[in-house]
């Protein structure tokens, strides 16, 4: 390695350099150009174009939100938890039943949550829809599903705005849903100003900022789930939350007629609010 490159790469953790080397080799790009991008704080996932999510490899493209390890953790936990959650779900996952379960993911981004669930559960056990207001995200989610061998009849991403009052009647969706998942934007306006450049300068702010207090989308989701006919009578919801939001969000969901549970992530943060219709 040239002395110049050595100086350049000394700012990178050893593993990142190794991964960039592999990426340069596989894609026939110069290592120098990749290292320069990384040193300019571009996330390695955008540079390499992929991010592992469980045993899946998902495409990553700016500015669509990069799947996080926390999201993988709770999605995998949900995949194990749901079949045990109530009698109908248990029977459903034990063998073919007359109706497949339906799942809606709000603000699907790369599609990581519904795609992993479709991948982990037996083929044909659910039909999932992911919606997003970003066309970039919708395209990427559909590409990811194809890449992971999930058919269009099992998962589809579509352009839609769940803040729109007419959303429950939108053509792209088909309520009632049995499972509702979401990792909505939850960073407060104030926190956003203090984020690392790696996040703030490259990822879509619309996928990150949840209004001035970070809770705006949870209020909207709480309204949505209380609308007649939007969720089935024994529906389960799973919402990712920011590090200090779990209790507030749990109360919001509880007040709409749900029993709630909070899951802690492996790094010790209250990360997921689970709701069961009472």
């Amino acid at each position: 390695m040239h002395a110049f490159m050595r100086t350049l790469t000394s700012g990178l953790p050893g593993n990142e350099l190794k991964w960039l080397k592999q990426g340069a080799k596989e894609s026939n790009r110069s290592l120098e150009s990749l290292v320069k991008r990384r040193l300019a704080h571009e996330p390695i996932q955008y540079i390499l174009g992929t991010e592992p999510f469980g045993d899946l490899d998902l495409l990553c493209r700016a500015p669509v939100l990069i799947p996080r390890p926390e999201t993988h953790w709770w999605t995998a936990a949900l995949a194990e938890y749901l079949p045990k959650t109530n009698k109908r779900f248990a029977e459903h996952f034990a063998g073919p039943t007359s109706r497949t379960l339906s799942l809606l993911d709000l603000g699907t981004g790369s599609g990581c949550i519904p795609i992993l669930l479709c991948h982990l559960w037996p083929k044909g056990s659910i039909v999932a829809t992911g919606i997003d207001i970003s066309q970039h995200a919708v395209s990427l989610a559909n590409e990811n599903a194809t890449l992971c061998g999930i058919s269009r009849s099992t998962f589809k991403a579509a352009l839609a705005d769940f803040l729109d009052p007419a959303f429950p009647n939108a053509e792209t969706i088909n309520p009632p849903y049995d499972i509702l998942t979401s990792n909505p934007p939850y960073i407060t306006a104030d926190e956003y100003l203090h984020l690392d450049d790696d996040v703030a300068n490259f990822e879509d702010p619309t996928a990150l900022i949840g209004g001035s207090d970070g809770l705006q989308y949870y209020r909207d989701i709480a309204n949505l789930i209380s609308r007649d006919g939007f969720l089935s009578s024994d529906a389960v919801i799973a919402l990712e939350v920011g590090h200090s939001q779990a209790d507030v969000v749990s109360d919001m969901i509880h007040s709409k007629g749900f029993n709630t549970d909070i899951w802690r992530d492996p790094w010790g943060k209250k990360r997921t609010v689970i709701g069961h219709r009472r």
Binding site: N15, E16, W19, P43, I44, Q45, E51, P52, L65, I66, R68, P69, E70, T71, N183, P185, Y186, I187, E191, L195, D196, D198, V199, E203, A207, L208, E240, G242, H243, D265, P266, W267, K269, R271
Partner: peptide, 19 residues
């Protein structure tokens, strides 16, 4: 089984690879 290193706020706040 431990996942190493603290991630601060974690989640959407951080996009470092943590494997």
């Amino acid at each position: 089984l431990e996942v190493m290193r603290a991630r601060g706020a974690g989640g959407q706040h951080v996009n470092k690879t943590e494997s």
